[in-house]
Design a protein around this nucleic acid. Structure first.
Length: 570
RNA sequence: GCGGCUGUAGCUCAGCGGAUUAGAGCAUCGGUCUACGGAACCGAGGGUCGGGGGUUCGAAUCCCUCCAGCCGCACCA
């Protein structure tokens, strides 16, 4: 089906084109009417004509028969009101559409999304939360839109830290490995302490780096042990969190080791490589350091080791050449902005990143505590993801107990997990990802307000209607006749799902979808209050059931695209 | 110093390709229904959109400047 928005846009576009080809109608949903087109204002300015006059003229050209009525409002807005028959027809089409009006991409793209990327040797902590949650929401959204998503979990699994860990493992003995690195964090910290305080240990580690990078068999065997252990731990965390990343998506720094020499050689052959202070660098134009001098991207360090710039460049090549990416997305914190700008610039210079490939650093802000400082535990340590989720589950479970639900223990625990994940993910996704946000478990897990659990509850309420219905209800071709304001208001909300979804995707801003879903939930509860469903009769009852069905499906799909569960009961 | 980001109701946030009375949630106060669905709904108060200047018929939104805070600026990723 063609979405309501697209239908209106197409017709307005024809009218705008008459005055200026390609002029954007700037069509938006409106509080004053159903939709409004603001594009007249800027068009009038370009044309040097009075806006109202331009608006009148466009109105004359616009063929909106049977779709909407238009009036010029204020200085020159076009306020559009859908004609009931059209609205009702769109609704009926929506009812029969499993995708709720969202089109499948006509030209599916291969989108490589780099996200999560924890350090393999450490336990996952809040610092990994946003990349993981946002990246997963984007991955799911792209998949739903019909694109081919390749998730890349670019874990830190190489270099000096690993040499250090290997030496530590040797000290402990590797016969009972699961025991010795059972607690990853402790293991890492022990190694770190030795590295910092023990010069012989440090020396051994240095030597071990060389052995690692040159592919020494025994070293690699030990490395494997640590990495495998860590990855299975990571996999558990992703499962607990309900994140779609799989073990196969883990393609860490180590993967690119064999490609690094070619990166250097090819940059050199392209005449881009410059030696500076013993390091091999590329100086992309436009980057300077604090003294105003050209800033290098260091590809190979003076000790001949490779920095992360080298592996990032190798990854670009691999993703473009071997994965045939049309889009590269890097969901990584904003502190790395300059690094990525430089990597992308160098990749473009080297011809590894053709113009046709969209390449974007998807940044995000920090997670803050309620004191507005970086989120830390009471004792000042970084908070582990597992304990964060654990606390959220506990709170959710307590809340469920209070509600005195008839759930048995395992079912209640299962539900608590779904609620906890929703609370944490929604809080992260519902504000503009570029801003910092305050992590306040109490607020985010509340069942009232703009929270994940509230949306889940809105969905569950709808599902309970169908449960109480007793019989199976299937959407059939209905004729709608929306007479109550709240019905119409809800219907308009349902019709607006495609543009909300597409805006979130186009701007890589999941919060736009969150804002939409919360608004829909509010329309829904207002409808609930005003319109009895089960106690109404005949065609009215069918119509209201259909609205409930659509709302439930919209919430369910919307949440699932964000990576949030929509339980049937709460 | 250079570059980037942030500053909107008591609190947490939307809105920022300029435009019709600046929105929401929480909190506060006041209501609603014989609550099949109620963890609901309705309403009210509360904002010189950090300050100042500019562009414009019109600025929270664009430009400049100042203030406050955060981040990055060559061999750790």
């Amino acid at each position: 089906m063609t979405s309501t928005y697209d239908t209106l846009l197409a017709r307005l576009q024809l009218a705008f084109d008459v005055l200026e080809s390609g002029a954007d109608p700037v069509l938006r949903t409106s509080e004053r009417s159903d939709y409004q087109a603001n594009g007249v204002m800027s068009l009038a300015k370009r044309l040097g004509r009075p806006p109202r006059e331009v608006a009148e003229e466009i109105m004359g050209h616009a063929d909106l028969d049977g779709v909407a009525t238009v009036e010029v409002a204020g200085p020159g807005f076009l306020n559009l009101t859908l004609i009931p028959a059209f609205l009702e027809r769109q609704l009926a089409a929506l009812l029969g559409d499993a995708r709720l009006g969202i089109a499948t991409a006509p030209e599916p793209k291969t989108v490589v999304i780099d996200y999560s990327a924890p350090n393999v040797a450490k336990e996952m902590h809040v610092g990994n939360l946003r990349s993981t949650v946002i990246g997963d929401a984007l991955a799911r959204s792209y998949r739903f839109a019909g694109h081919h998503v390749v998730a890349r979990n670019h874990v830190g699994d190489w270099g000096t830290p690993f040499a250090m860990l290997i030496e530590h493992l040797l000290d402990l003995g590797d016969d009972d490995v699961s025991l010795s690195i059972g607690d990853l964090d402790a293991f890492y910290k022990e190694a770190r302490v030795k590295f910092d305080s023990d010069d012989t240990f440090k020396e051994r580690s240095r030597g071990r780096v060389v052995a690692l990078q040159s592919g020494d068999a025994e070293t690699l065997r030990l490395w494997r042990i640590i990495v495998d252990q860590s990855i299975s731990y990571l996999d558990q965390v992703y499962q607990d969190l309900g994140v779609s990343l799989e073990i196969a998506d883990v393609v860490g720094e180590s993967y690119y080791n064999d490609m690094l020499e070619n990166v250097v050689a090819d940059l050199d052959a392209a005449g881009l490589l410059v030696e500076s202070g013993g390091a091999l660098c590329v100086f992309p134009p436009g980057f300077t350091n604090r003294d105003g001098e050209a800033l290098p991207l260091i590809v190979q360090k003076s000790d001949e080791g490779f920095g992360y710039a080298a592996s990032d460049l190798a990854a670009v090549r691999d993703r473009v050449d071997n994965l045939h990416a049309d889009e590269l997305l890097y969901v990584v914190g904003v502190p790395q902005a300059q690094h990525f700008e430089m990597v992308f610039a160098v990749a473009r210079l080297a011809g590894w990143l053709p113009d046709r490939v969209r390449c974007e650093h998807v940044t995000f802000g920090n997670v803050l505590g309620t004191d507005r400082k970086m989120f830390k535990s009471r004792s000042g340590e970084t908070v582990k993801l597992a304990s964060l989720l654990g606390e959220a589950i506990e709170r959710a479970d307590e809340a469920l107990k209070e509600r005195n639900t008839d759930l048995d223990e395992p079912a209640r625990m299962d539900l608590a997990v779904q609620i906890a994940r929703a609370a944490i993910k929604y809080a992260d996704l519902s504000t503009d990802r570029q801003h910092d946000y305050v992590f306040d478990l109490e607020r985010m897990i509340a069942f009232e307000g703009d929270t994940g659990p509230y949306l889940q509850y809105a969905h569950a309420r709808l599902r309970s209607i169908f449960r109480r219905l007793g019989e199976t209800w299937a959407p059939s071709s209905l004729t709608f006749a929306l007479e109550v304001d709240q019905e119409r208001h809800l219907a308009l909300g349902l019709l607006a799902f495609p543009e909300a979804f597409e805006a979130a995707l186009a701007h890589l801003q999941p919060h736009r979808l969150c804002v939409y879903l919360f608004d829909l939930a509010q329309r829904l509860t207002a409808f609930y209050d005003a319109c009895p469903v089960l106690s109404s009769e005949g065609a009215l009852r069918e119509q209201r059931l259909a609205l409930c069905d659509l709302a439930a499906r919209t919430l369910s799909v919307g949440l699932s695209v964000l990576g949030i569960d929509a339980p049937e009961k709460m």
